[in-house]
Nucleic acid binder design. Structure first.
Length: 822
DNA sequence: CGGAGCGGGATTTTT
DNA sequence: TCCCGCTCCG
């Protein structure tokens, strides 16, 4: 019975007068909320109000008094999702729901249960949870103990195997004999067992164990399982398409029917948004739902409240190419809106430049940067955009990883430089006074602060004075004296040494680089890399003052959450988010779909990539802009790329083909069906295009892929010949003939540029060869500045092409429009 | 302990 | 191609 004045009570009160919250739902949503009994699968397409259904359902259960808050099990994947759900339920019910102890992530709830019964699985209630690093280190020890050559059989490989087994709910004895054989001559299983034993000795569990041990507990202790089965009157699962086998087994145990009556379990998800297969998620779980839970009710949410018509049409048509799906048809009552724009760029640099321009234009038109996102397939693509935006002074934010200048190590390094440059910068001084550790802790800092306040001087000044007194302990006093001396020395060096070299000296002499080199944590290497990158980027500036000013300007503009800024993130990180304008970048074979997904997973991999594309497109409310570059640096080598097959899968009637408006002409759709509309098919004579054509043919005849002969190769025949693709192609040709308006217009613009006789120039690292000639306004000896190479002197002039001796980058040939007078 | 020399790898990421 | 991580050696 509900506690008087408790959440359930309040919820019921809030719902009086005909359940207003139900009236706000559309019929399908309402059906999903009201179907409380038995097993229910809610197939919620992108933007159809999934979270709303989930939260309303909880409120509904509470308001009907069907269960107390503590009798509802609601699981999510991320803490963020759990937090949001808590908030939203609390909002609906009138207050924050402290009373829902079983709303949380799979892992959080798993730990909670496990701690209560730790002894039953050989642990103590206070067991520690190992992170990936500890896990690897432990496995290394085990390999060592077993005398296994870690070179042939790397610890990380075994860690992945074990993770995989745990994801599939397999204990060492359950691992199929054949699978254990794949590591260290059949020792895989034995090593897994040894690892588990070692964990128990250490009273520790890794992430996989949190669920695996739960399953073991439930299986071996039926009375414990029964206790939880009785407790949880309702089970709700978010993002069901992302569950792995272990999570599925766990849910099955808790939600299995009792006495012939199916327990109340409601899973919400979208098979079309399953993008975590590589980390153990089983799309099959959602595809098989009505098989696992016989008599399950399936509710489809297909009414999309997010995107305009053209965007939704593209997303739907694209995902329709997948075979393994339950099938939903998203629809909207919104206007058709803007077509999805597909733009080609010469290379990734032009892609970034072009998108930067588009964003600036949108911004001039009053578009909020907050409502713009750039989505990439892989994080290495981000650098180019960050670089460009820093140059433009365009505020941006990297989601799912700190931005370059915000990373701790960069800020520390900058703090050193700031103190050198302006000794009164107390914040900077405070930041690094004990980084790396030099025995100047809180007490010393307090002393400095007191001194500074009393004498009204800077901390640097105070430090100078304090070492002359005996206020500090000898050890701290010595350390501070050393630091003071270092800063004096560095300031002197700053007068003679180039500032980037100074930075190297400072980072070394301060012991800062050392600190990270000695650091064993996983990201230490990345941090050192970032520091190197920082030093390199300093070359682009005249002196320390100029550099610091630039940085502080950049930092100022993106400081704080409140600043209007563009979001840059991976497609994975974008799931669940939405923006007015979305730029989808790098739609090239090999990058997207990613070659590795194809190689490792074949058709399943391709379908997951396609779902990723679907997730990407459906993030956009009003404007979806797809980009691909014709050339991209892959593994350090410039490679001519082929446009993504996903482009050919978009419905032509909903797409507008454009061309990057950078300094180079776009290279067009080399080898894509988009060329075969006849509008400019024969005008492609550039070497790049022909190379692309050859590549595409090669790929088709070879059976796909970039590599030469890596063994398990994905054969795309089934895909290229897929009837769906042909339909798309046909629809495209038809559409382009019948659409006299927008399409030919954009094509005309495209071909006009082509026909203008300009050939696509070849770019290498900002060098440009073969652009139309003209007379340069620069003369030999001029001092110039280049965005990428920094300052230099003009050594020779040839038309508009300059040979410049850069101060740091050596001699380069560059087109004059790329430099400005220094 | 640190630097040179080498081989292998090079997506996506939450807990 | 480039960068990491490991090994080997002084």
């Amino acid at each position: 019975m509900p506690i008087p004045g408790g959440i359930a009570e309040r919820a019921r009160a809030a719902a009086t007068g005909g359940s207003q919250y139900l009236n706000d739902l559309n019929p399908e949503q309402r059906e999903a909320v009201e179907a409380l009994d038995g097993a229910v699968l809610v197939l919620a397409g992108a933007g159809t109000g999934k979270t709303r259904v989930l939260t309303t359902r909880i409120a509904h259960i509470l308001s009907l008094g069907r269960a107390r808050p503590s009798e509802i099990l609601a699981v999510t994947f991320t803490n963020k999702a759990a937090r949001e759900m808590k908030e939203r339920v609390g909002h609906m019910v009138g207050q924050i729901v402290e009373g829902m102890p079983w709303l949380g992530t799979f892992h959080a709830i798993g730990v909670k249960i496990l701690r209560r019964h730790a002894e039953m699985v050989g642990l103590k209630p206070d067991f520690t949870i190992l992170d990936v690093d500890d896990q690897i280190r432990l496995i290394k020890q085990i390999l060592d103990a077993e005398g296994i050559d870690e070179k042939r059989w790397p610890a990380r490989v075994l860690a992945m195997l074990i993770d995989g087994w745990k994801n599939r709910g397999l204990t060492p004895t359950q691992v199929p004999a054949g699978e254990g054989a794949s590591f260290a001559n059949g020792k895989g299983r034995k090593l897994y067992a040894a690892f588990q034993e070692r964990l128990k000795t250490l009273n520790a569990a890794d992430f996989g164990d949190l669920l695996l041990e739960n399953i073991r507990l439930f299986r071996e202790q039926p009375e414990v399982l029964a206790q939880y089965q009785q407790r949880f009157k309702f089970i709700l699962v978010d993002e069901y398409q992302d569950t792995n086998v272990a999570q599925y087994l766990w849910l099955r145990l808790l939600g299995q029917s009792q006495g012939g009556v199916q327990k109340n379990i409601c899973c919400v998800g979208d098979d079309d948004q399953s993008i975590y297969g590589w980390r153990g998620a089983e799309v099959d779980n959602i595809l098989r739902f009505d098989h696992d839970f016989p008599g399950a009710k399936v509710v489809r949410l297909e009414r999309n409240y997010r995107s305009t018509g053209h965007i939704l049409a593209c997303a739907s048509q694209l995902i329709a190419h997948n075979q393994g799906r339950l099938g939903k048809t998203l629809r909207t009552e919104d206007v058709l809106g803007e077509k999805v724009q597909v733009t080609s760029a010469w290379d990734s640099e032009e892609e970034a430049r072009s998108i930067g321009d588009e964003i600036e234009e949108a911004q001039r038109g009053g578009h909020k940067l907050e409502q713009i996102a750039i989505l990439v397939r892989a994080s290495f693509q981000m650098r180019e955009f960050e670089d460009r935006f820093v140059t433009l002074g365009l505020p941006y934010r990297v989601i799912g990883g700190p931005r370059f200048y915000e990373r701790a190590e960069i800020r520390d390094a900058l703090a050193y430089l700031r103190v050198i440059h302006s000794p009164t910068d107390d914040l900077a001084f405070e930041r690094i006074v004990n980084v790396p550790k030099r025995g100047l802790g809180d007490a010393s800092l307090q002393c400095l602060h007191d001194h500074a306040r009393k004498k009204r001087v800077s901390l640097t000044e105070a430090a100078r004075a304090v070492v002359e007194t005996d206020e500090l302990k000898p050890k701290a006093r010595g350390a501070l004296r050393d630091l003071n001396a270092s800063f004096v020395r560095w300031r002197k060096l700053n007068e003679t040494l180039p500032h980037n070299e100074l930075a190297e000296v400072v980072l070394d002499e301060s012991g800062y680089t050392d600190m990270w080199q000695k650091d064993r944590s996983a990201d230490a290497a990345g941090r050192l890399e970032n520091l190197k990158e920082l030093v390199r980027s300093m070359q682009d500036f005249e002196n320390l003052a100029g550099f610091l000013e630039h940085i502080s300007l950049v930092m100022d503009t993106d400081k704080g959450e409140g600043v209007d800024s563009v979001s840059i993130m991976t497609l994975h990180a974008a799931k669940g988010l939405e923006f007015d304008t979305v730029f989808l970048t790098g739609w090239e074979e090999g990058l997207f779909p990613h070659q590795r997904a194809l190689d490792d997973q074949g058709r399943a991999g391709l379908e997951e990539e396609r779902r990723l594309a679907h997730v990407g497109i459906t993030r956009a409310r009003k404007h979806a802009r797809i980009y691909f570059a014709t050339n991209r640096r892959i593994h350090g080598m410039w490679t001519t790329t082929v446009p993504s097959r996903f482009l050919d899968e978009l419905p032509e009637a909903h797409v507008e083909v454009k061309e990057a408006q950078g300094a180079f002409g776009g290279a067009g759709y080399g080898g894509s069906r988009f060329d075969e509309t006849g509008a400019f098919g024969s005008s492609y004579t550039t070497p790049g295009w022909q190379r692309a054509q050859r590549n595409k043919q090669d790929i088709a005849s070879r059976g796909g892929g970039f590599g030469e002969n890596s063994a398990p190769r994905y054969v795309p025949d089934g895909v290229l010949d897929d009837p769906g693709v042909d339909e798309a192609g046909a629809a495209f040709a038809e559409g382009s003939g019948g659409q006299a308006g927008q399409k030919p217009d954009s094509l005309a613009r495209h071909s006009a540029k082509r026909g203008g006789g300009r050939r696509s120039p070849v770019t290498i690292e900002g060098e440009l060869v073969g652009k139309s000639t003209g007379v340069s306004s620069f003369a030999v000896g001029d001092r110039v500045f280049h965005q990428k190479f920094g300052n230099g002197n003009v050594a020779a002039v040839d038309g508009n092409k300059l040979t410049i001796a850069f101060d740091h980058a050596g001699e380069k040939r560059v087109v004059d429009s790329f430099v400005e007078r220094a």
